[in-house]
């Protein structure tokens, strides 16, 4: 089977600190994957590398067999861990903006989600609350028909009801060919929707397994296991 995301001996160092320290990983199409790990374990670094925003210090990361760059931007829909959109734009303008950049942007899908979340499309991003800004950015990211969605902390500032809606949105738009990778600390909220989890620990994959197998073997939730593995 073809792999959608491959990391081989992936190293990324900032000065002398190894954010990723020889990471080996493969992710198949059609999966919903939780990328979990304590602060500073390399989650965001991995996502940035996979999106071509950083270049590896050593080793490689491949998207569908291709080095991240111009070509993979049409395959990957990325939600950064911090606001990246022009704050002066209205939600309407942002939709045009996305449609210009990404041929796979689905306006109807976007419209529908914005309406459900009651986000006022004539308002400027900077005039919205933090949670609403996050929702807008996530809706835009999920409105693309990409092969790989990389969501870096998609629900941090969002209320629990909206979290449920967001997860439902991810499930509804689920495409058997596409993979969604969610980096998050809100494990209990997401674990029902995950196929598999990856525990990152100091730049390496400490665990990569199916969620149901994990529960069957340990009799514990992913959340409980995480607390155990990464106990301070």
């Amino acid at each position: 089977m073809s792999t959608l995301l491959t990391c081989k001996g992936l190293v990324k160092s900032y000065d002398k600190v190894h954010a990723l320290d020889g990471l080996d990983l493969t992710i198949q199409p059609g999966r919903i994957v939780g990328l979990l790990g304590p602060n500073g374990s390399g989650k965001s670094t991995l996502m940035k590398l996979a999106n071509g925003l950083l270049t590896p210090t050593a080793g490689e990361v491949l998207i569908d067999g291709i080095v991240p760059g111009q070509e993979t931007h049409s395959l990957v829909s990325y939600l950064p861990d911090r606001p990246s959109l022009p704050q002066w734009m209205t939600i309407d303008q942002l939709q045009d903006f996305f449609a210009d950049f990404f041929p796979d942007f689905d306006r109807a899908r976007c419209r529908e989600m914005l309406d459900k979340l009651e986000l006022p499309s004539h308002r400027k991003l900077k005039d919205l609350s933090k949670g609403s800004r996050e929702k807008v950015q996530l809706v835009l990211t999920m409105s693309r028909q990409a092969r790989l969605y990389l969501l870096d902390e998609p629900m941090g500032g969002v209320d629990p009801a909206a979290r449920d809606f967001i997860l439902e949105t991810i499930l509804k738009n689920y495409d058997p060919e596409a993979t969604v990778v969610i980096a998050t600390h809100l494990i209990a909220d997401v674990e029902k929707v995950l196929d598999e989890v990856i525990f990152l620990d100091r730049g390496k994959a400490a665990l990569h397994t199916s969620v149901d197998d994990l529960r069957a073997e340990t009799g514990k939730s992913v959340d409980a296991l995480f607390r155990e593995v990464f106990q301070c």
Partner: peptide
């Protein structure tokens, strides 16, 4: 499978299983 999974809030692959 897809609709039922979304309603239950679980992964479609899990519902399929």
């Amino acid at each position: 499978v897809r609709d039922w999974a979304a309603e239950a809030g679980v992964n479609p692959n899990t519902m399929q299983r």
